[in-house]
């Protein structure tokens, strides 16, 4: 049979394809059938948080940082509760990473603060003297791309049914609504409101001034995102 296949390239190719496609069908499709549902307390990302997430991706923080706490005593001691599938329900793309040159960040919002991130992102060695993390000072001067963040939210809502403007259940039994702007202008205004709350705890005068002018430096968005990782 194989000798025959080797003389009939078309059937050979079909044979190879069937053999390699088989595994995907069995391993991947079942998980899609039970698409990961959000755990209670997981909310869609706000405009500013998405902008921060985009900054995180743009700078490939995931090259050094994971966002996946494995169920080992040593990891839950260090980072907090092990990660649950439903916590990632709104993550497109997922950001688990595959290398921990730096620590896991899945719950960094629980034990680091705005001020800390501000200092650390500008110059990691000032906070952790032997850190090998690069500084990201340009994030303090480049503005976040709120338009694209808004477009991403719209895409998530329109193509994937992410529940913006709808009540989502919280752990304490209450519900929260994450609002999605009706227009670019409104999205900007909402992001700016959020940015003001973040900036209130920051020191950098240029960043504060920028927000006062109505701009949103990338660092503000990034910190909003890091703070939400809990």
């Amino acid at each position: 049979m194989f000798h025959w296949l080797e003389k009939h390239p078309f059937f050979f190719a079909v044979g190879v394809f069937v053999v390699i496609a088989f595994a995907g069908l069995i391993e991947i499709v079942p998980n899609f059938a039970q698409a990961s549902r959000p755990v209670i307390g997981t909310t869609p990302y706000s405009t500013l948080e998405i902008a921060g997430r985009q900054a995180y991706i743009k700078n490939s923080c995931n090259a050094c940082h994971s966002q996946l706490i494995r169920p080992f005593k040593s990891e839950t001691d260090r980072y907090g509760h092990y990660s649950l599938s439903g916590e990632y329900a709104y993550d497109r793309p997922f950001l688990w990473g595959s290398k921990r040159t730096g620590p896991d960040l899945h719950r960094v919002g629980n034990y680091r603060t705005t001020e800390w991130h501000e200092n650390h992102m500008k110059d990691p060695q000032a906070i952790v003297p032997t850190s090998i993390m690069p500084g990201y000072p340009w994030m303090f001067t480049t503005n976040a791309d709120i338009d694209t963040a808004y477009a991403e939210q719209l895409t998530a809502a329109q193509f994937f049914g992410v529940p913006y403007n709808k009540p989502v259940p919280m752990k304490d039994g209450s519900t929260t609504v994450v609002k999605l702007g009706n227009s670019i202008a409104e999205a900007h205004a909402m992001a700016l409101e959020e940015a003001k709350a973040v900036v209130a705890n920051m020191k950098d005068q240029d960043v504060k001034d920028a927000v006062a002018r109505g701009e949103i430096p990338e660092i503000v968005a990034l910190i909003a995102y890091l703070n939400r990782l809990k």
């Binding site: 907090g80 629980n110 034990y111 680091r112 603060t113 705005t114 705890n201």
Partner: peptide, 8 residues
């Protein structure tokens, strides 16, 4: 500044 609660 802000000192986080150390829940873990």
């Amino acid at each position: 500044g802000k000192m986080p609660a150390m829940d873990r």
